[in-house]
């Protein structure tokens, strides 16, 4: 799953989809995940990276990541 190349991300956690004109905001962890996705990291890489950095149960994060990905998809932010 890859974030569309033309999605503009900002340090403040804003996203702008130039294809649709929609703007989004994310929390810091959401921004981090999107940046990893932009670098074409696999789901497993993302899970590893986040679980390394944050105090979170792996299974719980996998579930949250699925839900987050689903939303990105619904917002047409994924390729």
């Amino acid at each position: 799953m890859r974030v569309r190349k033309n999605i503009a991300t900002s340090d403040e956690g804003f996203l702008f989809n130039p294809t649709t004109g929609d703007s989004f905001s994310t929390n810091p962890i959401g921004t981090e995940i999107i940046l990893l996705m932009k670098k074409d990291r696999t789901s497993k890489d993302i899970v590893d990276a986040i679980c390394e950095k944050y105090d979170v149960d792996r299974a719980l994060f996998e579930r949250d990541l699925d839900d987050f990905t689903l939303q990105l998809k619904e917002f047409s932010l994924l390729e």
Binding site: T26, I33, Y54, D55
Partner: peptide, 14 residues
Amino acid sequence: EKQRYERPVILKMN
């Protein structure tokens, strides 16, 4: 020490 976790969220600015 690991950082406090918060579920990732994305909100459409509506």
